[in-house]
């Protein structure tokens, strides 16, 4: 049994354009199984040329609703990712952590901002 499971994003999606949330869900299903079994995973973005936030939200963002940040950091390693894709992933992860911290508040905060703008008019 290998120490670390390797998952190729390109291999699963079958295209260098990883944009659909349904494809992201396929990645999530595999990551979820591995993390539930406390297995280390190397998630490779080799040959991936385009990513959307929708794909990454489904693939990785939703992990933060199931597992602790500590567990994700210790078991999931991302490999062969371009710097701008890493930047997008960082945004998605920050967004996901905020969302799962308190999903209701996540939306309410912005509602308050809009209401404040109205008051200023």
């Amino acid at each position: 049994m290998p120490d670390r499971i390797k998952i190729s994003v390109f291999g699963i999606v079958g295209s260098p354009l990883c944009v659909a949330s349904s494809d992201g869900q396929e990645i999530y299903n595999r990551l979820n199984t591995a993390l539930e079994a406390n297995r280390e995973v190397a998630l490779s973005f080799h040959n991936v040329t385009a990513l959307t936030s929708a794909f990454l939200n489904a693939a990785i963002g939703q992990l933060y609703g199931t597992f602790s940040e500590k567990k994700i950091n210790s078991l999931l390693k991302v490999e062969n990712i371009e710097q701008d894709d890493q930047d997008l992933l960082d945004r998605v992860v920050d967004n996901a952590k905020l969302y799962f911290e308190n999903p209701e508040r996540f939306n309410r905060v912005f509602q308050e901002v809009l209401e404040d703008e109205d008051d200023e008019v």
């Binding site: 936030s53 997008l88 967004n95 912005f110």
Partner: peptide
């Protein structure tokens, strides 16, 4: 901002902002 109508398990709300 941080806005999503998705609800449930998959966070969202970044697409149009990006």
């Amino acid at each position: 901002g941080n806005s999503t109508t998705r609800g449930g398990n998959v966070p969202g709300g970044l697409g149009l902002k990006l």
